[in-house]
């Protein structure tokens, strides 16, 4: 699956356009993406911090692509998620990296992180489950 096709599919999903991100790297069971900051992503208007729900949504979107990059209509079906918020995310680009820890016949487990300045300083970590059937 080439990046161009994946990003073309990403741009067809209304909520992915709302998030405004691009997939930058894609291997088997792994996806990296970059999100562009917009005022609609803000949770704290004074400090201009990202909303926690936007960070969780971005990691969910990246995780869904890692699980099923060749989606053409609807992305992989999420079951549930757990997110740890580690640092505030400030105005500017946000990166996410998702790795499929296990992909079974019915269920996939994905671990994701997001960061800004450096991967060693994650903004949030997440665990996501997807239903494959």
């Amino acid at each position: 699956m080439d990046l161009q096709t994946v990003n073309a599919n990403v741009s067809k999903v209304p909520f992915f356009r709302f998030l405004d991100f691009e997939v930058q790297r894609l291997d088997s069971l792994h996806a990296d993406a970059e999100m562009t900051f917009a005022s609609r992503h803000i949770g704290n208007p004074v400090l201009e911090l990202y909303h926690g729900g936007i960070i969780a949504s971005f990691m969910e979107a990246t995780s869904a692509i890692a699980v099923h990059p060749e989606f053409s209509d609807v992305p992989a079906k999420p079951i549930n998620l757990t997110v740890d918020y580690l640092r505030p995310a400030t105005k500017g680009p946000l990166y996410a990296s998702a790795h499929v820890t296990r992909k079974g016949k019915r269920i996939a487990s994905v671990s994701a992180i997001s960061w800004q300045t450096s991967r060693d300083k994650p903004v949030a970590e997440g665990l996501y489950h997807f239903l494959l059937v």
Partner: peptide, 16 residues
């Protein structure tokens, strides 16, 4: 929404 018909909400917005 996530679908072209715009009738299925993305989980992320529910989390937000």
């Amino acid at each position: 929404c996530v679908d072209k018909d715009q009738t299925l909400l993305h989980g992320g917005i529910l989390t937000a």
